[in-house]
Amino acid sequence: MPKTPYVPPIPPRIRAIDLEDVRAALRAGVDDFKAEPKFGIVIGLIYALAGIAMMAGIGGAAPIWAIIPLMLGFPLVGPFVAVAFYEISRARAEGRAPTWGDVLRLMLAQRNRELVWMAMVVLFVFWIWIYQVRLLLALWLGFAAFSDPASFASVAFTTPAGIGFLINGTIVGGLLALVLFSLTVTAIPLLLDQDRDIVTAMIASVRSVLASPRPMLSWAVFVAICLFIAMLPAFLGLAIALPILGHATWHLYTKTVERSGG
């Protein structure tokens, strides 16, 4: 019996967007949060409490130099948590009233889908983030031991080697964040919304960034600033920032990736 020839899947079509599309997506995200605040606040608080627990757990065990990159790197796993917000936005767009049962069932269903592999990609980049800090610390400051955050800050901000460490760490960390953003910005909502494989989704996500570099990079910077500010009050600001950004990312995806044919 002759074998059926392999037909590669048709990649999603990507639309170019502008800054007004980004602003419209953000406004739609705020509207979704206002319409269904209970989901955002509860899930956002759980995420924030996870950040507090992580910092409390590593506070006495992790070296001083690792605490700041762990805190700054924690939001890198946010896009995976935002799956619930994507579903709420999708339900509202389709005229459905989202329920806790629907949202929780969808989140649990992802354990058997491609989103699990995407989570592994996110966590892999997160660990690279941590280890590149350790490598740069060794290159610039040797294997010096710091007794407290104040002594680490004193060396990092007042010595040529420390400033070199901060500059190079910021550049390398920014590049890693850009890579992760490009791989996931539309890939995670695409995997939720369409029957696609992880490679196709990541390629489509990179293509969406390349098709609209200025709007997409502006969105990346805006997200980074919002998350940084939201973490300052003991991570609690994430209870508001994370759901709004999650809803907005869904709307950005619908403007960027053609959903038909999925």
Rank of each mutant, 00 (worst) to 15 (best):
R23P: 13
A153H: 08
G142P: 04
I198P: 00
A109H: 02
S89W: 03
L175K: 07
P37D: 03
G237L: 04
A224D: 09
L242I: 03
W127Y: 10
G174Y: 01
G237H: 02
S212R: 04
L252K: 00
V179N: 07
G162Q: 04
I64G: 04
V221A: 11
A234L: 11
L238S: 02
A138P: 06
A161H: 01
V223C: 14
A161S: 10
L106Y: 15
M54Q: 14
T4L: 11
I203T: 05
Q132H: 14
F181K: 02
A234S: 14
P69W: 06
R23H: 12
I41H: 03
A187M: 09
T4G: 05
L242N: 04
N168H: 15
L227R: 05
I64H: 08
M55R: 05
I58F: 07
S151P: 07
L227I: 09
F235C: 04
A150K: 13
I43D: 00
L166W: 04
V83D: 06
V133Y: 15
R92Q: 06
L19R: 06
G261V: 05
L135D: 05
M71I: 10
L176F: 07
V42M: 03
A156Q: 01
P160G: 02
P12D: 13
Y253G: 00
L236I: 15
L176A: 06
A145M: 14
V122C: 06
D148S: 07
I10D: 09
V206T: 08
V125R: 01
L135A: 10
M231I: 00
I128T: 02
G101C: 08
I88A: 01
Q110T: 12
V22I: 15
V199D: 13
Y131A: 13
W117Y: 15
V155R: 01
P189N: 04
V125S: 02
L245K: 02
G164K: 00
F126C: 02
R15M: 08
I171R: 01
A84M: 05
V155N: 01
F85R: 03
R207M: 06
L26D: 00
R134K: 10
A97D: 14
A211T: 04
A48E: 11
M120T: 15
L176M: 05
L123C: 15
V121G: 02
V257W: 08
F222I: 13
L135H: 13
T254F: 12
I14L: 02
R13H: 10
L166Y: 03
V155Q: 01
H251C: 05
W100T: 03
G40Y: 00
S89R: 00
A35K: 00
M54N: 12
T159D: 11
Q132W: 09
W100A: 02
V179W: 03
V121A: 10
R105E: 15
F80T: 12
L252I: 07
G164N: 01
N112V: 13
K3Q: 13
L108T: 05
V179L: 14
R196L: 05
G57R: 01
